[in-house]
Amino acid sequence: MKKFNQINRDEKTVKKFVIVIEAVKVNVANKSQWNWESKCDLGEIYAIKVDNHRFYTLVCKNLGYRELYISRYGRKQTNSNDKKLIATINSISKITIQKLLE
């Protein structure tokens, strides 16, 4: 949540983030915005790319709909943080999805 607040402070990053989500909804996102990273038993893992921010998102298919769970945060890949990002992505497979009735 802390990183969302950071994005929220800047109108430009909010705009970029919203455009990625809307582009994913209508299937027009490109790899510069929404990149396939990995897959696990829960589903596919994609990265929402907003400047240096990376929001690793679990995509589950449910009754033909795609459900997006933004699960982990990372920084843009560099030579020095490569291993850390792999560990971050791998940790998504250990997530428990809780669905609560309102």
Partner: peptide, 17 residues
């Protein structure tokens, strides 16, 4: 094991509108 956080949909929706 960790929980999934729910995004603040109110601000997201209002920005969209």
């Amino acid at each position: 094991m960790s929980k999934v956080n729910k995004i603040d949909t109110i601000s997201f929706d209002s920005y969209l509108k």
